[in-house]
Design a protein around this nucleic acid. Structure first.
Lengths: 138, 138
DNA sequence: TGTTATTTTAGAATTATTCTAATCTGGGGC
DNA sequence: GCCCCAGATTAGAATAATTCTAAAATAACA
């Protein structure tokens, strides 16, 4: 049973993104990326950090989330007014949005076919988001 | 040249939606629906109303927009954190979102084909939103 | 016209997020 | 190992969009 190095991956991840591996960035990266695909709000992540006794302010949560988005470690998903979700799955994909629970679920991009994309009148397509909104049965 | 009745359509629209045709609801319906398809924010609509000398508070703008959405006279579109757009086109369709200008543009639903829609694990599909995000040319 | 339920309103409250300016810290050089 | 300082973190204030509250206004209808 070798003593594992829990932060090794996170450190590399941050270094590769040219972000200094500070205490809080490492801890947040661990929370975000060591549990499979997740969709978290800033508040949720802050609560998790507090629960895990990681001293971190909400301001740092926001700073870090935005830095991770800029570094393409996260994707910001907007489905509801006044609240952003951050998605650890940065591959091309889409979402179910469950209106009752406010939860998101990934849909692999090969499960939906979006064909015949029109060209925008100017500029370049950055991304195509498909959101399937799901409500209670009938 | 018969003297036209500018509010006739709006009155019928509101009556059909079981909304009392009050001064402000009539005026806002006129602003919203007599200029073709539009995408407005609450603030924009309020500014327009003020510019047109319609006495209406921001609270009423919000109340009215939400009532219109509930009555399916409008559709709420969320593409940006912290700001809702209200779309007068309630037919099934999609959007270009121009990130620089913050403007939306309709895409008729027959211009894009979304096929192979997966079934949600529970509940019923309420709506499928496709947003094509457009940035400056590379 | 009088009555009442509905609507509108100003302003306060709430919520998510961003900003500010002070303090702290990771990491390179000695 | 210790110093330094650019970059990071922080508390708390500020901002922005939206919602709430409770009081005043008004549409509808007898």
């Amino acid at each position: 049973m070798s003593n594992h190095r829990p932060f090794a991956n996170a450190i590399e991840l941050l270094r590769a993104s040219k972000l200094r591996p500070t205490r809080q960035r490492l801890a947040l990266a661990k929370l975000l990326f060591e549990k499979g695909d997740r969709h978290v709000t800033a508040e949720q992540l802050h609560d998790e950090a507090v629960a895990a006794s990681i001293p971190v302010s909400l301001a740092t949560i926001y700073n870090t989330l935005h830095q991770f988005v800029a570094a393409r470690l996260l994707r910001e998903v907007v489905v509801n007014p006044g609240r952003s979700y951050f998605d650890t799955n940065v591959a091309d994909h889409h979402h179910f949005f469950f209106e009752e629970s406010g939860k998101l679920m990934d849909i692999a991009s090969d499960r939906i076919e979006v064909t015949n994309l029109p060209q925008p009148p100017h500029g370049a397509i950055r991304r195509v988001d498909v959101v399937i909104r799901v409500g209670p049965k009938s």
